[in-house]
């Protein structure tokens, strides 16, 4: 009886692993299998045509790249500096430290759609509108509407905890010995951070950035009403333009198009690209992090 019970426990838990892994494998297979035929160089380098029933996803890729680029420029420095604070300056007992830690944990749990609302309410309706009031002729909207800038900033906030967590881990993995050596040589704290701590955490900073980019490239909810466009005849040219986006494009094609069946190939190929981008970035980050952890254990 005991023996069979043991067998049940072990096989049930093993089966759970198998079930999850099977679903992952099937998901990947399904998308790869159905997407590969539509995937071509032309698909990547041409714009959608015929009311998005034909053509490629070039502007969609450009829009997504612009989004994650601006997002990284805005978000990564803030994330790295916050991680620096948490690992180098924070005292465990100080109220400020607790506030920052609490904020980072909370931020990581805020639903992405709430970030979208925040982007709309804060960036567009508050900052944008006030900028327009100050800079533009009365009644004209320039910043007070969805745009690449506001979507990128919203996404930067969403991915901030991702950067902070990864970079803090890397900073903490820098041996205490090296900090002591630098300080004992008469370097100041900031010199020590700049010349010893940060250079030894570069792979962690890279990991954090890659994870953030992977996350930002795939999220749709935050940009639904802060800047993503259904269709644009031209590429985004300035920060105040709207843009097309891979994830949003998938959503549009799969749910809003007049004939969903007819564009299945396009849909699968777009999902495949999106998956390759996020999956690839995550894979790199996981491997980097794994290497980092192994190195720091020694």
């Amino acid at each position: 009886m005991n023996k069979s019970m043991g067998r049940i426990v072990i096989s049930a838990s093993a089966l759970s692993v198998i079930a999850i892994v099977t679903v992952i494998a099937y998901l990947l297979f399904d998308i790869f299998w159905n997407g590969k035929n539509t995937l071509s160089w032309a698909f990547l380098t041409t714009a959608p045509t015929d009311g998005m029933m034909q053509g490629g996803i070039f502007p969609v890729i450009i829009g997504t790249v612009s989004l994650v680029l601006i997002m990284s420029i805005a978000g990564v420095p803030v994330g790295v500096i916050t991680a620096l604070y948490l690992s180098e300056y924070a005292r465990r007992t100080s109220v400020f430290t607790k506030m920052v830690r609490f904020a980072v944990n909370t931020l990581a749990g805020v639903p992405s759609i709430v970030f979208g609302l925040f982007g709309l309410g804060f960036f567009i309706q508050f900052i944008g509108m006030n900028l327009d009031r100050a800079l533009m002729p009365a009644g004209e909207l320039h910043w007070g509407q969805p745009s690449l800038l506001w979507a990128s900033l919203t996404m930067a906030l969403l991915t901030l905890p991702v950067v902070i967590v990864a970079v803090e881990e890397a900073l903490r993995a820098v041996p205490e010995d090296l900090r002591a050596a630098s300080l004992a040589l008469g370097a100041t704290k900031w010199q020590t951070i700049l010349k010893v701590v940060l250079p030894n955490a570069t792979s962690g900073i890279l990991t954090g950035t890659i994870l953030a980019v992977g996350r930002g490239a795939g999220e749709v909810a935050p940009i639904l009403f802060t800047g993503a466009a259904y269709f644009l005849p031209h590429l985004p040219e300035s920060l105040s333009d709207q843009f097309m986006n891979l994830g949003y494009h998938v959503y549009i094609l799969a749910t809003q198009s007049p004939d969903v069946e007819a564009t299945k190939g396009l849909q699968y190929a777009t999902v495949l690209i999106l998956l390759l981008v996020t999956f690839g970035l995550n894979l790199i980050a996981v491997m980097l992090r794994y290497k980092l952890r192994k190195a720091s254990r020694q």
Binding site: Y89, M99, V114, F122, L160
Partner: peptide, 30 residues
């Protein structure tokens, strides 16, 4: 240099907390 760095690091770290507050304020405001 060190003082400025210290100040900047503290100020920037406050952004995370400020964002939580701002989310509270601006989502409720609307």
């Amino acid at each position: 240099g060190d003082g400025i760095a210290r100040f900047v690091v503290h100020s920037v770290s406050f952004i995370s907390f400020a964002v939580i507050l701002l989310i509270f304020i601006f989502v409720f405001r609307e």
